[in-house]
Amino acid sequence: MSSTLILDHDQTRRALPPDALLPAVRTALIATSRNEASTPPRIAAIAPAGILGAMPGYVAGLGLAGKFVAIFRPGGPTGPSTHHGIVALFDENDGHVLALMSGEAVTAARTAASATVAFQELAPSTVGRIAVIGAGVQAHAQLELLHHLGLTAEIVVASRSQDSATHLAQRYGTATARTIQEAVCSADVVFCCTDADHPVLRHPWLRSPAHISSVGGSRGHELDRSTVTGGTLYVEWPGAVSHAPPAGAHELQDVSPDRAALLGSVLSGDHPGRTGDELTVFKSTGYAALDVAAASVAYQRATELGFGTRIDM
């Protein structure tokens, strides 16, 4: 009987170094654009206080995995949401369970990675200031990844709670805190990492040219209509536009599919990406191919370093 590797939250996080995760996410995005991935739309069971989503996927060259994620709001409708889950990596040849790992750690890391890949491909040629909107787990993961890249751009943190933004900015010596409008108005790149159910920024605040990577909005619109229609739009997978939430994006439900280009097609050279001084908008919904990429990296790295616990399932 083959054993299964168990990784807790901290072990999963340690097994996802950016230098390995970013290339894997790029591979998953390219595979998606070339129809080399099998990623059915996310489904969810609805409970009184939250949802349980299921996301299976296979990506050629990376592997076979699935995620169960519970999204709840224990403090009530206006409180912060929680994400609890597990990711299972399977052997693509015989189906046995290779590893079980923290869904929270995988989600935070792969989401930040996809937003960063979009930034690297679609940002203006000169980036002097980057705004990170949000002060929760995803904003922290995004700041951590940007810090790892060693960027020279000024980084500004903003949130609906100024105290939360200040606290998060203080964890990164070069970051400062501003209001959301102040941060957006002066930024060349904006990362929206919130759990908002209504837009957190307005199109008139944005500079031209600028780039937005929006990864929040699982409960509703994180971007306003004018931002979505006023920019050149990119997504991870076609279902972001063609499927209803929880698989697709709230902001893209009435957008024509031919308006959204796949980020993977830019990475592969099949789409030109940014062509001038336009606003570029990457709207992430999160989907299974990215979880496959992260799970593959985490399993390989943890195996190489010899940490985690092995059990017989």
Results as ranks from 00 to 15, higher is better:
Ser213Ala: 15
Trp205Tyr: 09
Ala165Met: 06
Leu146Val: 05
Thr174Tyr: 13
Ala141Tyr: 02
Ala141Asn: 03
Arg202Pro: 00
Thr176Val: 14
Val200Gly: 03
Ser164Asp: 14
Thr179Asn: 01
Trp205Ala: 01
His148Tyr: 14
Gln162His: 15
Gly173Thr: 13
Ala169Val: 03
Ser213Cys: 07
Gly173Arg: 13
Val137Cys: 08
Ala153Gly: 07
Val215Pro: 00
Leu149His: 10
His198Asn: 11
Ala169Lys: 00
His203Val: 00
Arg160Gly: 14
Ala165Gln: 03
Ala153Leu: 05
Arg171Phe: 05
Glu182Lys: 00
Leu151Ala: 04
Trp205Asp: 03
Val137His: 15
Gly216Ser: 09
Leu201Met: 13
Ala175Val: 11
Trp205Met: 01
Gly216Ile: 05
Val184Pro: 03
Pro204Gln: 08
Glu182Cys: 00
Arg219Lys: 13
Leu145Met: 13
Val200Tyr: 04
Val156Lys: 01
Leu201Pro: 03
Ser161Trp: 11
Asp195Phe: 06
Cys193Leu: 11
Asp195Tyr: 04
Pro204His: 11
Gln162Phe: 14
Ile155Tyr: 06
Arg207Tyr: 02
Cys185Ile: 00
Gly173Pro: 02
Val200Leu: 10
Ala210Arg: 04
Arg171Gly: 15
Glu154Asn: 10
Pro209Thr: 02
Gly150Pro: 07
Gln142Asp: 11
Gln162Leu: 15
Ala177Trp: 03
His167Trp: 11
Ile155His: 01
Arg171Pro: 06
Ser218Arg: 10
Glu182Ile: 00
Val189Phe: 08
Gln142Ser: 08
Thr194Trp: 04
Gly173Ile: 09
Gln181Asp: 15
Arg202Tyr: 10
Ile180Ser: 01
Gly220Tyr: 05
Ala210Asp: 06
Val184Ile: 08
Ser159Tyr: 10
Ser161Asp: 13
Gln142Glu: 14
Val200Phe: 08
Ala165Leu: 02
Ala139Phe: 09
Glu154Phe: 02
Ser218Asn: 11
Val200Ile: 12
Ala183Met: 08
Arg171Trp: 11
Asp188Glu: 09
Val156Ile: 13
Ala183Ile: 01
Ser186Asp: 15
Glu144Cys: 08
Gln181Ala: 15
Ser161Gln: 07
Ala177Leu: 09
Leu149Phe: 10
Cys192Tyr: 00
Thr174Ile: 11
Leu149Cys: 08
Thr176Cys: 06
Asp195Thr: 12
Gly173Asp: 15
Gly216Tyr: 07
Arg171Ser: 14
Leu146Tyr: 07
Thr176Phe: 00
His140Lys: 12
Ala165Asp: 03
Pro204Asp: 13
Ile180Glu: 02
Ala165Phe: 07
Leu201Arg: 01
Arg219Cys: 05
Gly216Lys: 08
Gly173Glu: 14
Leu143His: 03
Cys185Val: 02
Asp163Trp: 08
Ile212Thr: 02
His203Cys: 11
Ser164Gly: 15
Gln142Arg: 07
Ile180Thr: 12
Pro209Tyr: 05
Val156Gln: 05
His148Arg: 11
Ala141Phe: 09
Arg160Lys: 10
Ser218Ile: 12
Pro209Val: 02
Asp188Ser: 06
Glu144Gly: 15
Val184Leu: 03
Pro209Leu: 04
Ala158Lys: 01
Leu149Trp: 05
Val156Ser: 05
Cys185Gln: 14
Cys193Arg: 04
Ala187Gly: 04
Glu144Thr: 14
Thr174Ser: 15
Gln142His: 15
Trp205Cys: 00
Val190Phe: 10
Val157Glu: 06
Cys185Phe: 00
Ser164Thr: 09
Thr152Asp: 15
Val215His: 03
Thr179Ala: 00
His198Ala: 14
Val137Gln: 12
Ile180Lys: 00
Leu201Lys: 01
